[in-house]
Amino acid sequence: MPVRVVENSAPSQVSGANPGHTSPPACTLLSVGQAFSGTQNVSSQQKDEAWRVNVRIQGCDLDHGYLCGTMEALNVPMADTPVVTFWEGEIVDAKNYTFFTGKWEASPEDDIRHWTKFPSFSPLVGQVEADGGKSLDLSNYQYIFMRWKEQYFVNVGTDCGLTIAGFYYVCFSCNDGSINGFYYDPNSSPFQKLELKSTNEGRSGFSFSSYELQ
């Protein structure tokens, strides 16, 4: 599947307080309808456990740093059926959103602790610690950083055994469409890792059930 490969391997700093050219790169694999499949590690001290996870992007507006989609968790122990949630995302573009979350019980220290889990964040850490990354031009970087916040359950009730109180720190690779993420919730196991790969969007053995989002 074709994907735009960005030649520049490192971001640059931009001049001016409000740069207007910091939209993230337009990656082919970050678009409406694109599907991803993988796992979320939910291991605790008591047991090792991983859920199979499917994600589909339902909306994407790079200019405003917004995207949304559905997440389907399979083999959830306390649920009789796969659990589907609707999430909304913030794209870190230094224009609409910075690396500092500023809500959802996440402190700047929590932000840095989670972002530094991604190797691709290493070139950015100094500037992010200084100003949240406001002076970075991320438009030519081959990685897109995001936060995904689940908003509600689509097909089950709140008694399904899952919580959506937290959110995901997410890193998307424009080179191969892979997604890595870490779930943050002070009341859940720390650093639950999300690992997803882009699928062929139903063309080879993978498809989503149909859900109507109200």
Rank of each mutant, 00 (worst) to 15 (best):
V125A: 15
Q142H: 15
K117G: 08
D61N: 15
N96W: 02
D137G: 08
S31A: 13
K134Y: 01
L62E: 03
C27G: 01
I164N: 10
E90S: 12
D61M: 04
N41C: 05
N175D: 14
S9N: 07
G65P: 10
I112F: 04
R113M: 13
F100W: 05
G181S: 01
S37F: 02
P108I: 03
Q13M: 07
T22W: 00
D159L: 02
V14R: 06
W115G: 11
L124Y: 02
D110R: 12
A79K: 09
E105G: 09
G16W: 00
F99P: 09
S204C: 09
P77S: 04
G132K: 01
W148H: 09
T98G: 12
N175V: 05
M71N: 11
Q127R: 14
Q45I: 15
T199C: 03
K103R: 09
A106C: 08
L194I: 00
G89K: 01
L67S: 14
F99I: 00
S198V: 09
S188A: 15
G202N: 02
E88L: 08
G69M: 01
F100M: 02
V14A: 10
E212D: 11
Y183L: 08
A106Y: 00
P24D: 09
G202F: 00
A50L: 03
Y169C: 04
F99W: 05
C60N: 10
L138M: 08
F118E: 09
T158N: 09
Q142A: 13
M78I: 08
L67F: 08
V154Q: 06
A106K: 01
